[in-house]
């Protein structure tokens, strides 16, 4: 594990010394503050919203941005090193391939999670000072769910990176995956439902195929289990198994998504040329 942690620390150091981590943290902070402020304006008075409303406002935005950051950065990890010629050098050290992959995975996921936490942390402190409502627990829970999604998407990015010869190819695949899971998934599913009369178990299975959808439904169930905003999959799940069971099923699926992509990435990395 020493080598894994050494590589992970190096990834974090590289991220801190580059500009992307700071830019990402600043972007998140500004979006969190901006959404809170503008949300209150739309309700008729100017000022900051409380944590719950801010969290709900941020949900959809985070479900777009966090996967994008994790997928693109994850996709560059192996393919970028391969393109620069640094991968062979790293593999020339007395290491197993899984140690290299695990170190990069941990380091990247920790870096993106750190930037996200920094951004949300700063925004949280500002909002807490401006409002009387202190629903910090909800805010922290939401942050934890976003970090779980980051871990999943970093793993998927790494798997894409492991099969790509160039960074551009990996980035292209990452953008395609992001477009499908963030935008096209619902449309594809609606089309499938229309074409095949899918319902019940099929809908639930489809929900579990998309980690973004899992986190979205899980977050709404925890924040405000409103059937209107849960969407058809979430509504079906809540009505069929109830809130507690839905939470267990979705959490288990999320854990599976955290383990599966990086396992596949490791297998692909082992079987590919340096």
């Amino acid at each position: 594990m020493n080598a894994v942690m050494t590589i992970a620390r190096k990834e974090i150091r590289d991220a801190v010394s580059s500009t992307w981590l700071i830019a990402y943290a600043v972007l998140f902070t500004l979006l969190a503050l901006g959404l809170s402020y503008l949300g209150q304006r739309n309700l008729g008075s100017v000022g900051f919203e409380n944590f719950s409303r801010t969290t709900a406002s941020l949900l959809n935005l985070c479900l777009l941005l966090a996967p994008l950051a994790a997928l693109t950065l994850g996709s560059g990890a192996i393919a970028g090193d391969r393109e620069r010629g640094t991968l062979t050098y790293l593999l020339s050290q007395p290491l197993d391939r899984w140690e290299v992959l695990a170190g990069k995975y941990l380091g990247l996921a920790a870096s993106i999670a750190l930037a996200t936490t920094l951004g949300f942390g700063v925004a949280g402190v500002v909002i807490a000072l401006q409002t009387s409502a202190m629903d910090v627990g909800t805010y922290v829970l939401f942050l934890a769910l976003v970090i779980a999604l980051i871990v999943v998407m970093t793993g998927i990015g790494l798997a894409l990176s492991a099969v790509s010869k160039t960074r551009a190819q990996a980035l292209g695949l990452a953008m395609l995956v992001w477009f499908v899971v963030a935008f096209a998934f619902d449309l594809i599913l609606i089309g499938m439902v229309s074409a095949t009369s899918m319902h019940g178990g099929g809908l639930l299975a489809a929900l579990l195929l998309n980690p973004i959808e899992i986190v979205r439904v899980l977050a709404i169930i925890q924040l405000e289990p409103d059937l209107q905003i849960l969407g058809p999959f979430g509504s079906y799940l809540m009505e069929r198994v109830g809130r507690a069971n839905a939470t267990v099923i979705l959490s288990a699926a999320l854990l599976m998504w955290m383990a599966l992509p990086v396992t596949i990435a490791s297998w692909l990395f082992e079987s590919r040329e340096a």
Binding site: I7, D14, S18
Partner: peptide
Amino acid sequence: YVPQIPAFGEQDTCAAALSFIAELRR
């Protein structure tokens, strides 16, 4: 191993680059 193109991070100092290899090689 010495690769054809040196494979250190451009932003790393010489000491940091060597320390990383020292850690990997214990």
